[in-house]
Each structure stands twice: as C-alpha cells, then as structure tokens.
Design a protein around this nucleic acid. Structure first.
Lengths: 159, 159
DNA sequence: ACTGAAAGGGTAGTAAT
DNA sequence: ATTACTACCCTTTCAGT
C-alpha cells in the first residue's frame, strides 16, 4: 500500500515538466532540472514504478473526432448502501461516455463528466443509465457551453 | 479555422490506443492497427499537426505529491455580461489549483474542479476568489470522497 | 485510355535516447 | 540496443484531355 513516497525538488521539477508535456526528452529535462540526462531517466523510471506518474496519455480534441458535447451531471441516489454504491461505480468505470466520475459529499452523491455526440445521444444515455435505475433519485444536467480549462494537472507544491 | 479533419479507421485505431497509453511505440502500434511503423509515425505526426492530438501529458497521482483534496464547485454569477465572464475565465485559467473549468447552462454558470491541499487551503481559495468577488452570487461546494474515474478519454466513434 | 499530380504505404538508413 | 525520424521509392487514384 506504500503511500509514502518521498520526493525532492528535482523530482518535483521533473513532475511539473512532464505533466505539462510528456514528450520532453531527458536531454531537455536535464537542463531545466539541473541533473544529467541519465539521472533524469532513472528518476522518471522510479516515479513511474512508484505510481507517482500514473500514466502517460495523449489528449484528443473531442470536436475533431466528430460532433461532441460535454455534459456535467449531478446525481442523487435513493439510499446509499455499499452494494448499490459499488455497483454504480463499477458501471461508470466501464462506460465509455463517462470521462470522469466523482463520489462526493454535498448536494449530489456523484458528479459525472460525460462526452456524448449530441443531445439525443445524451437522452439515450439517461434512459439507459438513469431512468432504468431505481436507485437514482434525481439528477441534474449541466450542458457545457465552453470548456474554459481542461487538464489533469496538479499543483506540485514546494514543501 | 480548419475544423474538418477526416479520419479513417487507421487513425481511429491509433487515437484509441494513444489516448490510453501514449508511450506505445510505433512498432507496437503497427501491429494493432495494421500498418508499418513508419506509416503509423507519419499519421501520428499529422494528427499532432492537425491538433487532433492536443497534447501528450503525464498524469500524476495527487496524493503522492503530498496531502491533496479534490473539490467540485458550482458557481452562479451575479449578472452575466461578457466582460465579467471573460475576466473570470481568464482568472480560472491562470490559477494553479483550478484543474478544470467549464462554463455551463443549467443551475450553475461555472463548474470548477479544484485540487487543493486541505480544507483550509480551500477556505483560503474561497476567500481569495469568491468572497472577494462581487460578481459571484453564490457557490456550492462538493468535496470529493472517491475519485471513481479520471481521464480525458473520448469515445472514438465508428462512422 | 494516357499522363501527371497527389496521397499514402513500405523499406531502409540515420539520429536520438 | 531500442526507438524515432526521414528521405526515397513504389503503388493507387483521380483529373483533365
């Protein structure tokens, strides 16, 4: 379960760089962080092994793949027992249209970020996943008009 | 503003693969898509030039970087005029804690996904960005207890 | 049909990591 | 040593005549 990973400032600088651009070479990185290319590569390998770097991915433009719409949905469940919760989570993880899913406190139990083709596609989604599901008490839909900022970047804080 | 990029099934298979794992080699890709490594690379270059692939990034585990908390905030503005909107958007783009920002229809005007250190850090954020801002009518906070699914993956539809 | 241009794949050699 | 990049050549397609 090793949650305790200690990172120094070199690690932080590397992480800050690769989360902005994962294609920077160790050579370029060596200059910005102040280590040799080989040292940078060793650290990168360690950071991946330790799952500080979870994955390296390409970010696509949804629009370019065809008509696309982002929808944010807040869901309240009927009653929260573990079985229902886990089943719902599993289903969200398995569903392609679900880009992100958060289990939250507050008004909503879940917040989903979906990418669907159009409003009809979303209507179909609600039929398949919400109306057909007795556990869902209500849900609230927010259509995204402007994706102001997207990313998965995390502040790399100084200690 | 050439939005029209036509993609064939080869492109789709490449995109589907790299958005899951951006570190697959052209060699490996060549097998899964059925082209030569060089052809795959040429397509990757084109897809990046055409901004179908927007960026290649490393995804970090926020927890591993120190204490971290994800918060989803729904914001309603006082009155929506273009100046206020644009200024707010710009500010969100510039703020490190703001991982994602969406301008939406529905109950909320904006939905933010923040990554902060702890609840006190969030309190400071609200003071700096919400209470000090006369344009913000109200905001609703959802603390994330479980990040069920994260990613920026998009369905790569068949035509 | 014939030709020439354009697009895209493969091979192979070179540079980078 | 492995992987990425690229220059070169070949095939297919399609436009214009």
């Amino acid at each position: 379960m090793m949650v305790n990973v200690k990172l120094d400032d070199f690690d932080r600088r590397i992480l800050d760089a690769v989360q902005r651009d994962g294609r920077v070479t160790a050579d370029q990185l060596s200059e910005t962080v102040g280590l040799s290319p080989a040292a940078v590569q060793k650290r990168l390998k360690r950071l991946r092994d330790q799952k500080v770097i979870l994955q390296d991915i390409a970010v696509l433009d949804p629009q370019k793949l065809g008509p696309a719409m982002t929808v944010i949905v807040e869901i309240s469940l009927e009653r929260e027992n573990l079985g229902v919760l886990d089943q719902f989570k599993r289903r969200m993880r398995e569903t392609d249209e679900v880009q992100q899913c958060y289990y939250t406190t507050g008004e909503a139990d879940f917040v989903l970020i979906l990418v669907v083709r159009d409003i009809h596609d979303y209507e179909r989604f609600t039929r398949d996943h919400f109306f057909g599901n007795a556990e869902i008490r209500k849900f609230k839909t927010n259509i995204v008009m402007d994706t102001v900022k997207v990313g998965l970047s995390v502040p790399v804080w100084e200690e």
